[in-house]
Amino acid sequence: MSSPNRVVMTPAARRVLRAAAGLFYERGIHAVGVDLIAAEAGVTKKTLYDRFGSKEQVVVEYLADRDERWRAFAGEFLDAAPPDPSARVLAVFDATLAWVPDHNSKGCAMVNAHAEISDPSHPAHPIIVGQKEWMLALFTGLAGQVDADRADELGRSLVLLHEGALVAYGLGIFPGAIEHAREQARALLTRCAP
């Protein structure tokens, strides 16, 4: 999928993005209008449109920024993980555990956004889908280091554990959802390790 054009971030654009990010995540993308975003950011509606061109582009920037920050955050955990392949897989769950208290009180932003933006022609759709494809590729690559013959199967199982944990966490279905998923991933990796 091609990535959409991105906006050059001026100080006013950064304020708009910060305001939009909080509003979109807390209230939903469709529930938030440009008037509210501009007011929260302390800019005029004209400034918002001058910087972004449309609300759709604000949504693109919000999701792309969140995706980039998550990838960098997870990368730090992977860089710090021991070289053991199973430990590297579990580092992704550890990153998620560290990320969710400050970033995911209402569940995964990409899943939430997809509930509102399921049209593939929307410019934010490739970001939403791309983030989940990246997670699958990440887990599949890491799984290949555990068991090269079963990398695809193991990667899919790991992404299902991870994504299911995010949904359970966001909905508050039961306490410790991500910890439980991490433990299930550890058990799965133990069975697959040579």
Rank of each mutant, 00 (worst) to 15 (best):
K132G: 14
P83Q: 13
R186N: 00
G33H: 02
Y49N: 13
D94I: 07
R51L: 07
D147I: 08
H125Q: 02
T44M: 10
G170V: 04
F93A: 07
E56M: 05
Y169S: 07
L136P: 01
A80T: 01
V8C: 03
L189N: 09
R71G: 10
D147W: 05
F139P: 07
C108A: 02
V129G: 04
I117E: 04
L78N: 07
E76F: 01
D152T: 14
A165K: 02
V129A: 15
A80W: 05
Q184E: 13
V58F: 09
D94F: 01
V16Y: 05
G144Q: 11
V92P: 00
K132L: 14
I117W: 07
Q131M: 14
R88P: 06
E179F: 00
V159C: 07
R150K: 13
A148F: 01
S118I: 09
A12M: 04
I37E: 08
A31I: 11
S121F: 07
C108I: 08
V60H: 10
D35W: 09
R191G: 12
A193E: 01
L78F: 09
D119A: 14
H162Q: 04
E163F: 06
F77K: 12
A72I: 13
A113M: 07
N5G: 04
T190G: 07
G28D: 12
T140Y: 09
A80M: 08
R14V: 04
F24V: 01
H30K: 15
L90P: 14
N112M: 12
P4Y: 05
S2Q: 13
A12Y: 00
A72E: 13
R186D: 06
F174T: 09
A137E: 15
V16N: 00
E163S: 15
P101V: 09
P101Q: 06
D94N: 04
A13H: 01
K132R: 14
G170H: 09
D50R: 15
R150P: 00
A39C: 02
P82M: 06
V8F: 08
R182G: 00
H122S: 13
N5L: 10
S105Y: 08
D79T: 10
G75F: 01
A143H: 13
E40L: 03
R156P: 05
A87E: 15
T44I: 08
W99Q: 03
H162N: 12
F24R: 08
